[in-house]
């Protein structure tokens, strides 16, 4: 195996696993959002490395999928953050009332 892109694919798998573990063990929502981003990045890295392996041009189909995935991931992050911000506000206004 002379192809050195394999190291990125392996790194991607382990970054995804680190993100997954953190997603499971942490209770803080903000940290979970960060972990989910890392999980996604790891998956993307593995897919890009798989598309770019071997000689010749890279496979454009996984590239298209990842391009879509990056934008969907950032939409999800934005939505989670807005929900989390709203949650924190409701919590703090409840504290004020009691």
């Amino acid at each position: 195996m002379t192809d050195s892109t394999v190291v990125y694919a392996l790194a991607g798998i382990w970054i995804a696993m680190l993100g997954l573990r953190s997603l499971l063990v942490n209770r803080d929502h903000f940290k979970r959002i960060v972990a989910a981003n890392l999980l996604g990045s790891g998956v993307f890295l593995t897919l890009v490395a798989l598309a770019g392996r071997g000689e010749g041009a890279a496979d454009p189909i996984p590239h298209g999928m990842i391009l879509t995935g990056i934008v969907v991931a950032v939409s999800g992050t934005g939505l989670f953050l807005a929900l989390l911000g709203r949650l924190r506000e409701l919590e703090s206004s409840e504290e004020e009332e009691t």
Partner: peptide, 9 residues
């Protein structure tokens, strides 16, 4: 990603 032929990404 530049190293794995994915400049677009």
């Amino acid at each position: 990603w530049l190293r794995v032929q994915a400049p677009d990404l």
